[in-house]
Amino acid sequence: MRTYRAELLRSVNRATGAFLLLCIALSVFSMVNAGPQHNTPLWGFRQAAIFVATLLMGRAATVTAGDFSTGTIRSWLISAPSRGPVLLGKLAATMSVALGFALVAGLSAYAVSSALGTVPAVTEVATATAQLGFACATLTLFGHSIGVLARSVPVALTVTLAWILPVEAVLDGRFHNSEQWLPGLVAHQITLGQLAPGSTPPTALTHAMLPFLVLEIAALAQFIRSDINS
């Protein structure tokens, strides 16, 4: 609990505020440009959702790997009797920030959509926000696990962005039902509210999150066992 609270306290800063504004700006831009494409602002919100989740993935990777490269991870470990709760507390806090971002983005979407003249149904906005929240949580998990494993900001950012952007795009279509299995792609489908043919919501949620969960467990195991030389 202490680690969770300390990590949340650390996250409350101007950089996080600026990052939040960036995510909102991205959503608003997409919503505003939906009209000329004969779509609703909420459609625009959904289009931008995966980019918001990707930005949060990058944030998670940067903050986590940065702790190792700057040595601030030492403070967490010296103050705690065991490592597992430290990592889980930091993960929980990072996830909380990501979900908080999704919530604020969802509320902004409702406000912006209304301001643009299209008042969406609350359930529609809530669904889109929840789907964004899921994608944010999933990709944050990915960013956090790679940050722990890589312990270097450039490496963590490269690996996460490379996987989500070009690698999955290359793999898509290379094997049977790839669009149902590639986690980033499935997360994108969830944010769009359009699952691949043959996919169901429970399987989509599982396929999106499970690989990253496995990665996080591997990261936890490595973190508990390895030396911290930074």
Binding site: R2, R5, A6, L9, N13, S75, W76, S79, A80
Partner: peptide, 11 residues
């Protein structure tokens, strides 16, 4: 803020 973070960490 640094002191506060570590205060929370250490109890």
């Amino acid at each position: 803020r640094n002191l506060e973070i570590h205060r929370v960490l250490t109890g």
